[in-house]
Design a protein around this nucleic acid. Structure first.
Lengths: 349, 349
DNA sequence: TGACAAAATTGGAACGTTCCAATTATTTTG
DNA sequence: CAAAATAATTGGAACGTTCCAATTTTGTCA
């Protein structure tokens, strides 16, 4: 029942040529005669030959394994799921295959998984680093000449390329919009304060408040897990403040959805009684009710660009670290109140 | 800058032993003396040696590549993302690494991706088949002795193991519950009618209607894409019927969320004006507002069980196809109205 | 101490491919 | 038609590991 492996030598024998010729056919080399090529291809199909990349890769130490490692910190977050899908698209059509692993923010897992991927000879790595990842964790990779692209989060001091979104500008735009709608007390909800992404978005939030002539009060910044449940918790804390905010920029869309849930639990209608703005623009943001106003990051597109960047580096051979900041744009939907609401609110003053 | 690869021979030279001994150390063989083992391990660390699984795998044709292929049909659906996370957990801790690919329901993609995985020598495959997958697509795999486990969806005629959930029983339980709440016109919303999962759930829905003495009307069955957007569309069609339903069993949670969105767009409150039940129990079901009554499938647990099943087959060497039907249970939350609502409704009759 | 057993180590072949240099077959050219 | 050029094919070495059988070292016992 256990079939013997069909090798290039079996093909050669059956087709009456040498193994070298078969190898050339496999590589679609122009050196081989059309007739021979056809004959060999027929035999390949007949015998059900399966190319052994492991063996090939062993011989050509310089050449590439056609495997790309992808390590993300939270695949259950649909932002990352979509990112992975975007990566997969370009990786697949470039003839690569992706190792995808989830670390769940565990540094140990991340170490293990990267080590394992190295043993398998990945030709590049896309990493959305777990919290607390240090430059030294990536050192061996770059020393071995394996191109690495960080995505979403950066690792300070690591000499690798990165693709992150313009968190500061996005947050700034969102808060400016809220201020323009007449909101005076705008909260910042959710996210882990010890991440770079958090600081960047917070910075944009603060700058925008100042630019709008509003006071940046410390207790309007409420961290939480960057999840739906975290959003519920954060909005509850916000609503229990002495002076309640009337609007919030949320760390990401998951938090924003949670905030909407928390508002409803308090009989407040998001978009009417309280303005909510998210960050990321995950796929559900458009169809949710109310449709979520959010800073669009286009995770899938981001995944595609990341993969392209990595492939470029793999093909170039040498990797000059390149830091790309993807632009973002505010998508105004229903969750922050419409212009009509704004007029109403102004009329009340 | 491009570092030479450190091989087992370099280690041997540096440690003053033979390559065979180094190999034994790598395999943690009890044959090697403690002192020698320690010495070799030191050198391994010093030189930054990276094990080459490709080479090892080439030699031991019988042994396994420590790679498991995972192919899902829609990673942007959080059900599958969670499934993948569950698989990843047990796969990782068994020392394997997973190739994860997304087909997006494309049979071509699926073919390509499986072929590519075979070339890389996967030692097993977990497949949530794209729509229209046929037994013949899996034939070569099983002929090559590669264990395959289908998950979520079955492929008729394929002699491979499978792990699906008890769709019929789940749908039956959900509809019975709705009927018990006093609903007489219960719709079935969403899903592609040409899938086995759809038929199974529909069958459970119909049986439950009959058991409850209700009429199963054809136009209360409304298919759509199994997504949030599909749910919006389906519920809209349901509400435009001459005799409107008052409750719906949705194909999955995504559809159910969409249905809630669609209801709100019509100024109907899910759980109050219309009862909604989902299927899957994705992570957001608990925290959504209203919390979703749904048939809990525990996607992550399902992923774990699937991976365990596959690993068992890999280790056993031979694979008797084994069909497991995972039990499900109805989780009653807010989206279908409470017992109190039921009393009210009965009082009105 | 010599004989034997047990423990530890070792060189070489093998896995399936690609690359190189060399060879053979075919075509072109003067 | 011979010589040169070009096209097509080929055998053998190499990639980094594991396995096998053989060898060397160490330990035990009479």
């Amino acid at each position: 029942m256990v079939k013997e492996r069909v090798t290039v030598i079996d093909i050669a024998r059956a087709a009456g040529v040498s193994k070298s010729t078969v190898s050339l056919v496999l590589q679609a080399s122009p050196l081989v005669n059309e007739t021979t090529r056809a004959k060999v291809n027929v035999v390949i199909r007949e015998l059900g030959y399966v190319y052994n990349r492991g063996a090939a890769n062993l011989r050509q130490s310089n050449a590439k394994s056609k495997i790309i490692g992808v390590v993300v910190n939270d695949l259950t977050n649909s932002f990352f799921a979509e990112l992975a899908v975007g990566i997969d698209m370009v990786v697949q059509s470039a003839g690569y295959v992706q190792f995808l692993a989830n670390t769940g923010e565990s540094l140990d897992r991340q170490r293990e998984v990267i080590a394992s991927m190295r043993e398998h000879g990945i030709s590049g790595l896309i990493l959305s680093p777990a919290r607390g990842t240090e430059a030294s964790d990536l050192k061996p990779l770059v020393a071995a000449g394996i191109p690495v692209v960080n995505v979403v989060r950066q690792v300070v001091g690591a000499k690798v390329s990165s693709l992150i979104s313009d968190n500061q500008a996005g947050a700034h735009a969102a808060v400016t919009h809220l201020a323009g709608l007449g909101h005076r007390r705008i909260a910042f909800l959710g996210g882990f304060p010890d991440t770079a992404v958090f600081s960047e978005r917070l910075q944009g939030y603060r700058d925008a408040l100042i630019d709008a002539g509003l006071e940046a009060s410390e207790n309007l910044v409420i961290g939480s897990a960057p999840s739906r449940a975290g959003g519920v918790a954060a909005v509850e804390r916000a609503l229990s403040l002495a002076v309640q905010p009337t609007a919030a920029l949320c760390f990401n869309d998951a938090v924003a959805f949670g905030a909407c849930d928390g508002l409803r639990a308090r009989r407040l209608e998001p978009g009417v009684d309280f303005a909510v703005v998210g960050f990321d623009d995950v796929i559900e943001a458009k169809t949710a009710v109310p449709a979520l106003t959010t800073v669009s990051v286009d995770p899938q597109g981001m995944g595609r660009r990341t993969a392209q960047l990595l492939l470029k580096q793999i093909n170039a051979g040498k990797a000059d670290a390149e830091a790309i900041v993807g632009s973002v744009r505010l998508v105004i939907r229903q969750s922050c109140g419409s212009a009509a609401d704004k007029r109403e609110r102004l009329a009340l003053i």
